[in-house]
Amino acid sequence: MNQDPTAAEHPVEAATDVFLAHRNLLFTVAYELLGSAADAEDVLQETWLRWVGVDLSTVREHRAYLVRICTRQALNRLRTLARRRESYVGPWLPEPLLTAPDVAEDVELAESVSLAMLLVLETLTPTERAVFVLREVFGLEYGEIAEAVDKSPAAVRQIAHRARAHVAARRPRGAVSPAEARQAVTAFRRAVETGDLRALLGLLAPDAVLLGDGGGVVQAAPAPVVGAESVAALLCRISRLPVSLTIEQVNGRPALVSRVDGEVDTVLALRLDEGLITGLYAVRNPEKLSRMTRETALGR
């Protein structure tokens, strides 16, 4: 194998260049597995520390090798997070990200990082989640995934089949175009701002569910709010609060962001099924809102 003389003379610089070229991809892999930007950043740091010690001349495919390191580190952290979430106060929701318009243009990527899909992924085992994400979102071959999750290619095929069926039964029904999503969120914002109960009931599915994540730090619904009437009644209270509501790109989809005195107070993402809102995800935990002040670059 021919060795790049520059890589041989400056191994850390060469490793850095390769890592930075794939950084957005690696962050997205880690985030989709963990649902937390802070933990994804920690995984990237761990990935870098292992990558910088690798002899690049022995690596045939940089992208696959980096994804393998990143996935293994994310799986280790995911098991730790599972124990941490057992003691979490109230419903746990993924950390929302302010994303650039180009994420929304990649429909598959936008769906995979939406809060609705991340919650579906939470119902998979760690290995199933990794296999599903690496295969369905990032298009890795079964052999590459097998090395990342320490399974045989045959076992990975079975896991992928099981995970696809599991996700298909729980993911939103019917694809929603960016225009349809924007129209639904715009109508929703208008109804919330005016406290229009009838309009809200017309937008919500009868079995709509609202989850609120305050993390025990700020006030939020301690349990899921179930049913259109209960959800609408709760939302109507917002019109009486001194908050400003804007529509922003969150995890590749338009979402409602409320601010108090210019500071982000709540991110409210929606799940749409066949034209109606079936899921509402209100993230209020201040520790999860830091990524709403700047755009996060995602990639695949």
Rank of each mutant, 00 (worst) to 15 (best):
N24D: 15
P96E: 07
K151T: 05
G35H: 03
S36G: 04
T28H: 03
Q45C: 11
G53F: 06
L33M: 12
L124F: 03
D55G: 01
L49E: 15
N24M: 05
E86K: 14
E61D: 12
R135V: 09
D55Y: 00
V89N: 07
Y65I: 01
P153I: 02
P126D: 04
E32I: 04
L49K: 08
P126M: 06
N24C: 09
L20R: 13
V43H: 11
A110M: 01
A21K: 10
T47F: 00
P94R: 07
L20I: 11
L119Y: 00
D150C: 07
D17I: 10
L109N: 00
S57G: 09
E46V: 06
D42T: 15
G53D: 13
L66D: 05
L34M: 06
E86T: 14
T123A: 09
S87G: 11
L26G: 12
A37K: 03
A30N: 10
V89H: 08
H161M: 12
K151V: 04
I145M: 05
L34W: 06
A110R: 03
I159K: 00
V120H: 01
I159N: 02
R135Y: 04
Q158P: 01
E61Y: 11
V113M: 02
E41G: 04
E122F: 13
L119C: 08
V43Q: 08
Y142Q: 14
S114V: 01
L66W: 06
V29Y: 02
L56E: 00
L119N: 11
L33Y: 03
L119I: 03
L81K: 13
A82W: 08
W48N: 00
D39L: 13
L20D: 08
M117S: 13
R84D: 12
A163R: 12
L109Y: 00
A30S: 15
V18R: 01
V103E: 02
P91I: 06
V103N: 00
A155E: 13
V67F: 02
A74P: 06
V133Q: 09
E144V: 13
L49D: 14
S152K: 04
S114M: 01
E144N: 07
V156P: 08
V107D: 11
L97E: 01
A74Y: 08
R84E: 14
S87I: 14
H62F: 09
T47E: 03
A154P: 00
D42Y: 08
L20C: 02
L134N: 11
V29M: 01
I69A: 00
R85S: 05
V107F: 11
Q45E: 14
L34C: 08
A40T: 05
L26T: 09
G35T: 06
T28K: 03
R60A: 10
L49Y: 09
Y65E: 14
L26E: 12
Q158L: 10
L25N: 07
V52N: 08
N76M: 12
A38T: 14
L97W: 07
T125W: 07
D150G: 03
R68H: 02
A104R: 10
A64Y: 02
E105V: 07
Y65H: 11
Y142R: 13
T80F: 11
